[in-house]
Design a protein around this nucleic acid. Structure first.
Length: 461
DNA sequence: TGAAATGTTGGGGCG
DNA sequence: ACGCCCCAACATTTC
């Protein structure tokens, strides 16, 4: 019998362009594909039933893809190191192959895998793994623009660098596993069918239809101008390298492709930041910003969380996330600015709530985004950059369609006036069938007042 | 990957 | 014709 190895999947749920799979297969070995359901992740304080449901759907899709090629997915549950130890004993495997994963939790998890047979980390969840982009003095970048310049100066991938999915896979043999759980169920309102095939279709559709206009429409809340690939990138249902190749190939269509590539470089940037500065999960990247006196009013937090702040663009976005598991990136900045700078609530409260809701919730990107908004992070928005929720709504949802889509109680208010319902005349409110304070809240804070309060709290004056 | 306050300019109304 | 004022539009500064 030929040699056996384990292929341990974590966040690379795909067969195409999977370096770890290719390395496991080298030499014609028997490969046992393994996924370990890790209770520390699935039931932790930062877990999300929606994201778990998406993951389980991805496992099902992967299992189908494996079975179509003569293999199957072995699913176990427990502490990964313990389950892998059992699997090595049961299969006689001589090595474990996995794609490198870079969060602090991932490193601890992988460091616990210490056996007489090696864990070989091949490839990366980043396009360019941490450590490969450093300043001349060997230090990591902490500012995005020079980071991206260095990122782009390295050899760029092209289509020939992408490995096709193997047409056939070896039979993993008789290895015990548990059925893929059927709960939690992905709510029908979540518009992300899991799986590698869907991820590839979306990338293709985005490149064909939307990437040319991405530079103009990416910030529009009311349009479908983004790729909506984030959940798939989060779980590696598509290789980030494949997304980069697609962006590079589309450069001829206009500035949109370069802009989207820039977003993919931001993704790598925050993976690197988390790798080099793991303390950012617990506190501000910038020591000078650790002494902000947060108000942390629980009622304000509840209003924000539930989409009941009285600012329609904020509330629409929070309800979009609660119902669909996803939020437009512009809206993420708006609601984050509102929580941190209008309500003066610790950004970590918002960061955790996002992790509990988002299908694409990812520690690096989520932490980076929150610290950016809070003005506490690398290359962050300055403390005095405070979004005006009305201005943002009028600018990026100019007809009010996004607000009305998620706030049925405002359906009777037409146009951009929906962004400040408290300014409607009594006659207009009556015509819209709207009683403020009953159907929809009055603003929980006056933005102008809140802004002054935050400028003072951040030590501006 | 802001917004508000403040400053400047230039056209038009008007005495 | 001229100065004065108002104010919108734009630019700059400040938070």
């Amino acid at each position: 019998m030929s040699e056996t190895v384990l292929w341990w999947l974590r966040r690379d749920l795909r067969l195409a362009d999977n370096d770890a799979l290719a390395a496991a297969l080298a030499g014609g070995r028997r490969v046992v594909p393994v996924f370990v359901l890790d209770p520390a992740l699935l039931d932790g304080p930062r877990s999300s039933p929606t994201r778990t449901a998406f993951l389980l759907g991805g496992l099902r899709a992967l299992d189908d893809d494996l079975r179509a090629r003569g293999s199957r997915l072995v699913v176990r549950r427990g502490r990964p190191a313990a389950e892998l130890a059992r699997l090595l004993a049961e299969t006689g495997a001589t090595a474990i192959y996995a794609e490198d994963d870079h969060s602090p939790y991932a490193h601890n998890r992988d460091d616990a895998v210490q056996f007489d047979r090696p864990l070989r980390l091949v490839g990366s969840a980043a396009v360019r793994p941490p450590g490969t982009i450093l300043k001349a003095n060997g230090q990591p970048y902490t500012v995005f623009t020079p980071f991206s310049r260095a990122w782009l100066s390295l050899p760029l991938p092209d289509p020939t660098d992408l490995r096709p999915a193997p047409a056939a896979l070896p039979d993993p043999g008789d290895v015990a596993g548990e059925p893929i759980p059927d709960t939690p169920v992905l709510p029908p309102a979540v518009p992300f069918p899991p799986g590698e095939a869907e991820a590839q279709r979306r990338l293709q559709r985005f490149v064909d239809e939307a990437i040319a206009g991405y530079d103009d429409t990416r910030d529009r809340l009311d349009l479908d101008g983004t790729s909506r690939l984030s959940p798939y990138l989060r779980f590696g249902m598509i290789a980030p390298r494949a997304a980069v190749v697609a962006a590079l190939s589309a450069r001829g269509v206009g500035p949109g492709a370069a802009r989207w590539l820039n977003e993919l470089i931001w993704r790598d940037f925050y993976i690197h930041i988390l790798e080099h500065f793991p303390h950012v999960t617990r506190q501000s990247f910038q020591p000078a910003r650790r002494d902000v006196v947060w108000r942390n009013d629980p009622d304000d937090f509840a209003a924000w969380r539930d989409g009941q702040t009285g600012y329609p663009v904020v509330d629409a976005a929070m309800r979009q996330m609660a119902q669909s598991g996803w939020m437009h990136n512009r809206a993420r900045m708006i609601v984050a600015s509102f929580l941190v700078k209008d309500l003066l609530i610790d950004w970590r409260w918002g960061e955790q709530w996002f992790m509990r809701c988002l299908v694409d919730g990812d520690p690096a990107a989520n932490n980076g985004g929150w610290q950016w908004t809070a003005g506490t992070g690398t290359d962050a928005a300055p403390y005095f950059r405070i979004f005006n929720p009305v201005t943002q709504g009028r600018k990026f949802d100019p007809d009010g369609d996004y607000a009305r889509r998620w706030l049925p109680e405002l359906a009777g208010v037409s146009g951009a006036a929906v962004h400040e319902p408290w300014r409607l005349s009594p006659a207009e409110r009556q015509a819209a069938g709207l009683v403020l304070g009953r159907d929809y809240p009055l603003p929980i804070v006056d933005h102008a007042v809140a802004r002054e309060r935050t400028l003072a709290a951040y030590g501006g004056r």
